[in-house]
Design a protein around this nucleic acid. Sequence first.
RNA 1: CAGGUCGGCCAGGCGGUCGCGCCCUGCAAAGCAGGGCGAGGAAAGUCCGGGCUCCACAGGGCAUGGUGCUGGGUAACGCCCAGGCGGGGUAACCCGACGGAUCGGGCCACAGAAACAGACCGCCCGGCGAGAGCCGGGUAAGGGUGAAAAGGUGGUGUAAGAGACCACCGGCGCCCGUGGCGACACGGGCGGCCAGGCAACCCCCACCAGGAGCAAGGCCAAGCAGCGGCGAGGUGCGGCCCGCACCGUUCGAGCCGCGGGUAGGCCGCUCGAGGCGGCGGGCAACCGCCGUCCCAGAUAGAUGACCGUCCGCGACAGAACCCGGCUUAUCGGCCGGCCUGGGGG
RNA 2: GUGGGUGUGGCCUAAAGGCAAGGCACCUGGUUGUGGCCCAGGCGAUUGUGGGUUCGAAUCCCACCACUCACC
Length: 111
Amino acid sequence: MERRIRLRRPADFERVRQEGCSLSHPLLVLVVRPSGFDCTRIGVVASRKIGNAVARNRARRLLRESARHLYPRIASGWDLVLIARPMILRAKEPQVREALALLARQAALLE
RNA sequence: CAGGUCGGCCAGGCGGUCGCGCCCUGCAAAGCAGGGCGAGGAAAGUCCGGGCUCCACAGGGCAUGGUGCUGGGUAACGCCCAGGCGGGGUAACCCGACGGAUCGGGCCACAGAAACAGACCGCCCGGCGAGAGCCGGGUAAGGGUGAAAAGGUGGUGUAAGAGACCACCGGCGCCCGUGGCGACACGGGCGGCCAGGCAACCCCCACCAGGAGCAAGGCCAAGCAGCGGCGAGGUGCGGCCCGCACCGUUCGAGCCGCGGGUAGGCCGCUCGAGGCGGCGGGCAACCGCCGUCCCAGAUAGAUGACCGUCCGCGACAGAACCCGGCUUAUCGGCCGGCCUGGGGG
RNA sequence: GUGGGUGUGGCCUAAAGGCAAGGCACCUGGUUGUGGCCCAGGCGAUUGUGGGUUCGAAUCCCACCACUCACC
């Protein structure tokens, strides 16, 4: 997933998590807020609760890969933050993608 | 063959599709195309040591902290190598904070007479007493206590005894000789056995250490607003004092409280005490010379997903300025040296 | 990145190198018509883990683990 469509700055993360709406699933949490631009940007978070550095990297990679496959079908003009939950370490990529698609449909971002 | 011990190495492979970061080249550019590179042996814990950067410059004294057999290696070390000594193991081999207890202070619970100073039961002598025994003195062999109580055996000696004396053995101190750079070892002589342990208690001795840390430090851009109180000292060095320098005591350094602004980008940023190969020196750690290679540089933080296939369904685990060590975690596999036991030729 | 702190029964705290103490909780009995309060008795500890120093370690030293705080 290219960096230009990623959330980068700490202030962006702070704004989305303060002002956005959140939807949860056992594997992850999705936070949504209108971006004010045409494009949609996505940020990925794994806290120390997930585990050590290897586990946190694994969780972020799963979320990024799922978002990459779904990105063309997601509506434009939103900022998304994906937060990993501990259960995600036991899942494989298609399950994570399915969970993300479910949350995106609930948020009316996906068809 | 079995068991042990020491050392070194590997860390799923191959093929395909989609995807990520950096660098180079081409195109005028957003970008696209091609090529190259892309986590570890511990990247970890942050327990030590250095490089690098800033703190204006260096000095003296007192503290504080660390290390602790000897020699060597190294940029340096609390690391490594070799050796000595002590301990463990049949052995290969492993382990060791391993300087000083007559400078001084402190501690050694309980038990025990007594924990570094003395005598409870004993033994012996003298006196008293009809006697049991009592009093005074000598003694430290035997008993008892304890983790620890004036070296062991045999003799001489004695009232009873005792290194009081003698022989041998063991330990300690001093002196001399030999070997070794040295720690130390071996041999000889003398001395008295005056008599403990703990310095991972203070301490003494020797050696070492200025402070902070890449959020160091430098550049660019953007933004802002002051007010009130205390006030003669404050800052540069971290602990203190001296010295030196700077700012300040009318125009107010600094501190405290309230309030206001920013949290973007670039450099540092990877070529290094570097890897590999050869030759030479050294027992080794390691060093020198020559050749050759370029091997992550991210900044919400790049290595992943899916499919096929093989083995045994693959552990611990992710660079964040860089190196040298230590320690800890780790499924399993491969190679080699040595030791012990058994069997065969 | 740097520098501190803590770890003791289920919980909260004690303990100058010498038998790990107390309160709450829990259990049993008493008191009461019943429960609480109260009284008596009892159970319950690898002192975070592993080594070392010492005759002897919760205490001293080293390494590790977990939690936690402060600063930039």
